[in-house]
Design a protein around this nucleic acid. Structure first.
Lengths: 210, 210
DNA sequence: TGGTAATCTTGACGCCGTCAAGATTTGCGT
DNA sequence: ACGCAAATCTTGACGGCGTCAAGATTACCA
């Protein structure tokens, strides 16, 4: 396959893929339309057949990042059915480890590429889908007496904010090294969640896979 | 003052100021060296006498944003001496309201302009100074039985992460409107902090000034 | 099968970050 | 007080960028 034809065949997805790769390796400042086009093997203006401008391409890359994040979390959660506490922790850990594994992509996804101008429906849909997953886990934890009772959506926002905050501050290198020297990131997440749960969490409750 | 001389006199700070203004009004994508120079009344290459490149100018603007944030928080905290719980809440509220008042500046400050390449000592200093303030408040809250005992620095990271997460998700419009329709942002912050404190928080404990 | 729409290329425009060379001013050592 | 080196700012140029217009090539449907 991949014969060189005049028409690419699936250029739109190829551009998103190429863009995600450049973003990972060179950061958001190294991401240009012309480089993306070049990497996909087309001329510098070809992307305009599929995206009205650069912002929209970046929005598509953001949406793809959101999709990967969701699936990463969902896979981690599904490994522990009927264990709400474990679901909560592994979802948090999946979120944070994903952010650390591809900081530039995570940043673009959550750094307001959607510059207020337009809304990007696919992006909003991923946002709602992810939030729904958190709400479901929080609800299960409340039913199990692990989290305080109350409106699940509000508690979900609190928990998500904590996790998102840890992820953001970590990849911005804003978390004090006096803390990171004392404990692993995994232990830090446990400590953070400990503040919100009604039960006491210890690292041995959450062994690493393998 | 402000006579038109060949030498500006304080161009470095004027560039930071002009840059912060453009950033506020046009967002990070509208921030160019040439516009900053033009706004400061100098030619397009004049900034290179004070900053080696654009990244360094942005780092200086970030540092200025961090400084404003610190002073905003510090002023709010100093209104409630000998009231650790109030200090904790007002610091959190100051952080989040600052982020909402100038989202673009806040984003740049905490969106990894410091692209790993170099470190900017003044920025790191503001970071440490701010963290020290949080640690002090957390320590006081622990002494008053408001927060769980334990290493204050780790608890400070947790609290800061929660607050930073709320601020980030708010300005990215990532927080579900089903939640924001139900309560004000101030109540959301109270609800979030409620998860971490040992005492019960209610909105009437934290009346708005004026 | 023919023509229209989709896709891609080529070329151009102005803005951008950056550098080199030169003009102007400051300020320090003597 | 003077002169000169350093600091500061201007001008001009370069390639890369996002974007648009015109044209070439291909796909598809009536």
């Amino acid at each position: 396959m991949a014969e060189k034809k005049y028409h690419h065949g699936d250029l739109k997805n190829a551009l998103i893929e190429a863009g995600a790769e450049i973003l990972s390796k060179e950061g958001v400042n190294g991401l240009s339309l012309r480089k993306v086009a070049s990497k996909a093997g087309v001329s510098h203006a070809a992307p305009y057949a599929h995206f009205p401008d650069k912002q929209t391409l970046i929005a598509a890359i953001s949406t793809e990042g959101y999709r990967r994040l969701y699936e990463h979390i969902d896979a981690a959660v599904q490994k522990h059915p009927d264990d709400p506490l474990r679901e909560l922790f592994e979802a948090a850990w999946a979120y944070i480890s994903f952010a650390m594994s591809d900081p530039a992509h995570f940043k673009v996804t959550f750094s307001g590429v959607v510059e207020k101008e337009k809304d990007y429906p696919a992006f909003v849909e991923m946002s709602k889908k992810s939030f729904g997953l958190v709400v479901r886990i929080v609800t299960d934890c409340q039913a199990a007496g692990i989290l305080k009772p109350g409106p699940a959506e509000v508690t979900a926002v609190s928990v998500w904010s904590l996790v998102h905050g840890i992820a953001s501050l970590l990849i911005e290198d804003q978390i004090s090294h006096t803390v990171l020297d004392r404990m692993s990131v995994r232990e830090l997440v446990i400590f953070g969640l400990n503040q919100t749960t009604l039960v006491e969490l210890t690292p041995d409750q959450f062994p690493l896979p393998d």
